[in-house]
Nucleic acid binder design. Structure first.
Lengths: 345, 345
DNA sequence: ACTTGGCACTCACCCGTGCTGAGTGCCAGC
DNA sequence: GCTGGCACTCAGCACGGGTGAGTGCCAAGT
C-alpha cells in the first residue's frame, strides 16, 4: 500500500511549496518531513504522482510543484483543519461587534477577511431574491416629490426620490400619498420581492381615478426599487495583498484586478460556487477551475453565511493558487460563523 | 533668449518620454521635433535643464527623463490643452445621462473616468459638510422599532433602524413619533448638518416627560446619522489600469493599492488638492508632491464638480507620474462639467 | 515486490568577459 | 551662440564555462 505514502508525499510537497514558494525536490522532502524512506523512493513516488498529473516540474532539473489537480486532491482529502486560536476568535468577534447596520457589517467583514487571510476578500450582500418586504414608506418631500423607502427583512434598505409630474395640489397630494402608502403596504408587506413587484399593477388599478396618475408614478418607482433590490451586489477589499503575494501573481495582476472590478463576473462565480459546494458549506475553486480567464492563476474559497438552513449569501477570499488552504478555509469559515451570528440578532 | 528653446526642449522631452517610456537623447529629440538646431546645442540645453533639476539621467550613458519638478513646470507653463473631440463629448454625455440616482451618477462617473483615461479614477461623494438637511422622516416599523431617514439637499440619503427599548404602548408610540417627527423637522430642516446635530438636545428637552425616553433614543440615532452624513466618502475604479501601465508602477503597485484602499488617505489628499488648486479648478499633484509614501510614484489630477461657484466635491484620476497630462486634464475637466450639469437638474 | 545506493545526465543559475551602441561632455572652430 | 568632432562612459546583451540541485534509471539488497 504505498498509496498512502504517495498521498503523504503529495501533502508534503503542497505544504513545502506553499511555505517556500520554491519547487521542492526529493532530498529536501525527506529532510523536512520524517518520511522514513530514502530520497530515491520518494523520487519513484513523485514520478508516479507526475504521471497521474498531480505535480509537475517547471523545468527539467528542478523540483516539483503541485498542479491544480494536485491542490484539488490536497483540499479534498489531505487538508487537516487548523482551528483558530481563541485569541483570533476573540479578535474577530470584537471587530465585528461594533457594526451599526448592514452596510457596516458587510464593510467590516470584508476588511477583516482581507486582513486575517492577507488576501483579497469578497462579500456578497445578503441576497434579496429570498428576502421579503418588511415595510414600504412614502414620504412627501418638498412640493412635487416623494421619498420612497423599501425595507426588507434582511435589513437592507433601498430608497428613491420620485418626481411627481402629475401631482396637482400639494395638500391633496399628502392625503392621497398616505392612503397609497397603506394600500401598498397591505399589498406587498410580507411578500417576496418578486411577488411584490407583480402585485403592484393591481394596487394602481384599485386607486381612485383622481389619484391614479400619481399612484402609477410611485408604483413605477417602487417596482424599480424592487428590481434594484433583487440585483446582487458584492464588495471587495484587500486587493493590495495580491500585489504583495509574490511575483507570479503580480505578473497577471492586471487581469485579476480587472475580473474583480467586474462585479458581474464575481457574482456569477460566487453563485456557481454555491452550487458546486453542494450547499452552503465551504467551496473551493482552484486555478483553472475558474473559467474566467483572468482568474486561472488564483484560487477562491467561499462559504455561505447568514440564515439558518439556507444561506443568505456568500463570503470568501481570493488569492494565488499556492495559498495556505487549511488556514484560509478555517478563517473563512470562522468569519462566516460570526457574521451569521451577528445577522441573526 | 535661449530660454525659450530650453523650455521647448523640456516640453519635447516630456512628450517623448510620455509616449515612448524610454529616456530620450539629444539626437532623437532633433529628429522627432523640428527644433532647427543640432544635437550638440540640445545637449548644452539639456545640461542646463539638468543643473536646474528639471530632468535627470537614470544612468550615465542614457537619455534624460523629466523629474517631478520638470513635470511640474510642464504642467504649469507648457501644457497645451487638447480639446476633446465632439464624439468623445457625446459619449460622455450619453453614458452619464442614464443615471437614476446619486449613487448611480457617482458609480457611472468613476467608471467613465477610469475608462477614458485608462487610469485609476477617484470620485468623492458630494460633500455634506456644506449640505443642509432637507427632511427627516421617522417611521414606526414593527412593534418596537422605527426607521429613521435623513435626506440632504444634495440628494444623499442616510437611514437607520432604531430599536426603541423604552417604548411602551405601540399605539401611543405611533402618535408620539409623529409629533416628534414634526418637532425634529421644525428644528433641523434647512440647517447645515453640523448645526442640526447641535439642535438635537434642545428638541429632546422640549419633549413631554412621558415621551422623553423615546425621543432621546431617536435623537441619538439621528445624531449618529448626521455624523455619518458628515463623513466623507470616496469611490474608486480602474485599478487594473494601473497594473497595465508599465512595469515601473507595477513594482510599487502594492503600496499604491494600499493607499487607494485607505479611503482616509485619499480623502485627505483630495481635500488638500481643493486648497492648493486655489479653488475648484484643476489641481495636479506630481510624484513626490504627494506626501503619502505609497503615492510618490504617481500623479493625481482632480477638479471640483457639482455646485456653481463653490464645488460640492472633487473627482479625478491617478496614474503614473509619466502620464499624458494634457489629455488627462482635459478628460477630467470635461467629465466634471457634465457631471455638474447632471447634478444641477 | 518494494526499497536503496550509485551514477550519469540535464539544465537553470551565476559570474566573468567582451562587444556594441546610444548617449554624453568638452573643445576648438565657425 | 551654434556646430562638428572626438574621446569617454556604461547599460544591455551575448557567449561561455562552472556549479549544484535535482532527476531517471538500474542493479543490488531486503
Amino acid at each position: 500500500m504505498s498509496d498512502d505514502r504517495r498521498l503523504a508525499v503529495l501533502r508534503a510537497i503542497v505544504e513545502d511549496y506553499v511555505s517556500t514558494h520554491e519547487p521542492v525536490g526529493s532530498k529536501a522532502l525527506v529532510e523536512r518531513h520524517r518520511l522514513g524512506v530514502s530520497p530515491a523512493t520518494i523520487r519513484n513516488d513523485m514520478a508516479v504522482l507526475e504521471d497521474e498529473g498531480y505535480i509537475t516540474q517547471p523545468h527539467t532539473s528542478a523540483g516539483r510543484i503541485p498542479t491544480d489537480k494536485g491542490y484539488r486532491l490536497f483540499v479534498d482529502r489531505l487538508a487537516t483543519v487548523k482551528p483558530m486560536s481563541t485569541a483570533e476568535k476573540r479578535a474577530i468577534q470584537t471587530f465585528l461587534d461594533g457594526a451599526v447596520d448592514l452596510d457596516d457589517v458587510v464593510d467590516r467583514t470584508v476588511r477583516l477577511l482581507a486582513q486575517i487571510t492577507r488576501q483579497a476578500a469578497v462579500v456578497q450582500y445578503p441576497s434579496l431574491s429570498r428576502a421579503a418586504v418588511r415595510h414600504v414608506e412614502v414620504v412627501p418631500v418638498g412640493g412635487r416629490s416623494a421619498l420612497l423607502v423599501l425595507i426588507t427583512d434582511t435589513g437592507r434598505v433601498e430608497q428613491r426620490v420620485v418626481e411627481l409630474r402629475s401631482a396637482a395640489d400639494p395638500a391633496a397630494l399628502v392625503t392621497s400619498l398616505t392612503a397609497l402608502r397603506t394600500r401598498l403596504n397591505a399589498a406587498v408587506a410580507g411578500h417576496r420581492l418578486q411577488e411584490a413587484r407583480d402585485a403592484l399593477t393591481e394596487v394602481v388599478q384599485q386607486t381612485p381615478a383622481g389619484e391614479m396618475a400619481v399612484a402609477a408614478e410611485v408604483a413605477a418607482a417602487l417596482g424599480d426599487c424592487l428590481t434594484a433590490g433583487l440585483a446582487e451586489r458584492v464588495v471587495i477589499a484587500g486587493t493590495s495583498n495580491l500585489a504583495k503575494s509574490g511575483p507570479d501573481l503580480a505578473a497577471s495582476l492586471g487581469s485579476v484586478l480587472e475580473a474583480l472590478e467586474e462585479h458581474v463576473v464575481l457574482l456569477r462565480l460566487v453563485q456557481e460556487m454555491a452550487e458546486d459546494g453542494g450547499g452552503d458549506g465551504l467551496a473551493v475553486r482552484i486555478g483553472s477551475e475558474n473559467l474566467h480567464v483572468g482568474l486561472t492563476e488564483t484560487s477562491v474559497v467561499t462559504t455561505g453565511y447568514g440564515g439558518e438552513g439556507r444561506a443568505l449569501a456568500r463570503l470568501g477570499v481570493l488569492g494565488p493558487t499556492r495559498m495556505d488552504y487549511p488556514t484560509t478555509m478555517a478563517a473563512v469559515r470562522a468569519v462566516s460563523r460570526y457574521v451569521s451570528r451577528i445577522l441573526a440578532t
